[in-house]
């Protein structure tokens, strides 16, 4: 039986995001990408909830919730 992996949650608060690209640069698995004025989650399956994006977001715009 194939294991179904539960995804972690990445919340982007669009009103606070300035599109500075810092989180995209820090993400080790290319989960995030800049495809417009604010950051987008493009590859949620690869997210390991390491929290580097949240840690380095200067604008409190990313909240990562680890799936237990």
């Amino acid at each position: 039986m194939e294991k179904t992996k539960k995804l972690h949650k990445i919340e982007i608060i669009e009103e606070l995001c300035k599109g500075c690209d810092i989180c995209v640069q820090f993400c080790p698995f290319d989960v995030l990408a800049m495809n417009g004025p604010v950051v987008e989650v493009v590859n949620l399956e690869k997210c390991t909830a390491c929290g580097l994006c949240e840690l380095h977001c200067p604008d409190f715009a990313i909240i990562v919730t680890k799936n237990k």
Binding site: D21, D59, T65
Partner: peptide, 26 residues
């Protein structure tokens, strides 16, 4: 993961600093 709201004046957000400024990280 960390609850910043406890220490912030939430009504003052967003921060004034430019996109890419590191002050928010500090």
């Amino acid at each position: 993961m960390f609850n910043y709201e406890k220490y912030l004046r939430m009504d003052k957000l967003p921060l004034i600093w430019c996109a890419g400024c590191g002050d928010g990280i500090v």
